[in-house]
């Protein structure tokens, strides 16, 4: 478990992370989302003790990172596909890490095999492609067989096979009861992988909830109803406090209402219903709605050029 309490990071005037408090639970995959510049990387760097918080604390399995004697055995992390010295081989890179944390060298060969790099173990890291670098980073994260795994954008640079592989890996790590904390900007990927979401914007917490709940809270959850009597139906639904948009002549989109309610109202006014369906938004839609107010870099619109 990772516990953040009131974590704050300021760079001069700019607040990168703003009083963040949340807990990352074991046994589930927790997705970490936010627009570029929202403070995700700063947060992850503070979790690993690389950056010093301006205020607040982070505890990993009950202790600050710097107090863990052999941290690779407790938490493994992938921050950046550039993990090692370009002149080192993948194997010696991992071997150094293993020695630093008193891990047997059998772990090195094991993780190299597990990520599919056994054949290039003696090649220089500098010659690796982005995808291979990413796999090496994942091997580094798994080296100490840690109970907590933290991955920053792990699917970057991976081919489709690699994407499926990392998704299965994260699911299986969580199924083994480990804590899995992963950031990604690919919403479809998160929707497939994460159980729980933490969304931040401008350094502050926007959402900390199970993924289903994040999607369910979206105002884009709607009911579609098709009926020949749209005019009277619309009037009745609006009277009940729902928001109704006419999609086509015979089709209405209703928000702030559920299937049962819409069906009951149609029945009460004797309207014929040809189709009644619930529309669930994608995570992407729910996410965009959540972060709409906190985009770090809003698109700059060109000034209207008057004539």
């Amino acid at each position: 478990m990772i516990v953040l309490a009131d974590l704050t990071k300021r760079y001069g005037e700019k607040t990168a992370v703003d009083h963040l408090s949340f807990q990352i639970q074991p046994g589930v995959v927790t997705g970490f989302l936010g627009p570029n510049g929202a403070g995700k990387s700063s947060t992850m760097r503070m979790i690993l003790g690389l950056d010093r918080p301006t205020a607040g604390t982070v505890e990993i399995a009950g202790r600050p990172y710097r107090d863990i004697a052999y941290p690779l055995r407790t938490i493994g992390a992938l921050l950046d596909p550039r993990t090692g010295h370009p002149g080192q081989s993948a194997r010696s890179h991992l071997l150094g890490m293993a020695r630093s944390n008193r891990l047997p060298s059998s772990r090195v060969d094991h993780v190299l095999g597990a990520v599919g790099l056994a054949e290039v173990a003696r090649k220089r890291i500098g010659s690796f492609s982005l995808g291979m670098g990413q796999r090496l980073g994942i091997a580094s994260a798994l080296l100490g067989d840690p109970q907590i795994v933290m991955l920053d954008e792990p699917v970057n640079g991976l081919d489709p096979d690699g994407v499926v592989w990392i998704r299965k890996l994260m699911r299986s790590l969580a199924a083994e009861g480990r804590t899995v904390f992963v950031s990604s900007h690919l919403m479809s990927e998160m929707q497939e992988t994460a159980d729980h979401l933490i969304v931040i914007g401008r350094g502050a917490l926007i959402a900390d909830a199970p993924i289903d709940q994040v999607i369910a809270q979206s105002t884009r959850n709607s009911v579609k109803v098709r009926s020949p009597q749209t005019a009277s139906l619309r009037e009745a639904l609006e009277r009940a406090g729902m928001t109704v948009t006419t999609l086509e002549d015979s089709e209405l989109q209703v928000t702030a209402g559920n299937l049962d309610q819409v069906g009951a109202i149609a029945f009460s006014i004797g309207a014929q219903v040809d189709e009644l369906a619930f529309h669930r938004p994608s995570l992407e839609q729910a996410y965009l709605e959540l972060t709409a107010d906190s985009l770090e870099y809003d698109a700059i619109l060109p000034r209207p050029t008057g004539t």
Partner: peptide, 18 residues
């Protein structure tokens, strides 16, 4: 210095945080 250039200082400090 090469650890700062290559970014491997992060790996180093993750392994030996003190």
């Amino acid at each position: 210095a090469s650890e700062y250039t290559s970014g491997s200082i992060k790996t180093t400090l993750q392994s030996v945080p003190v």
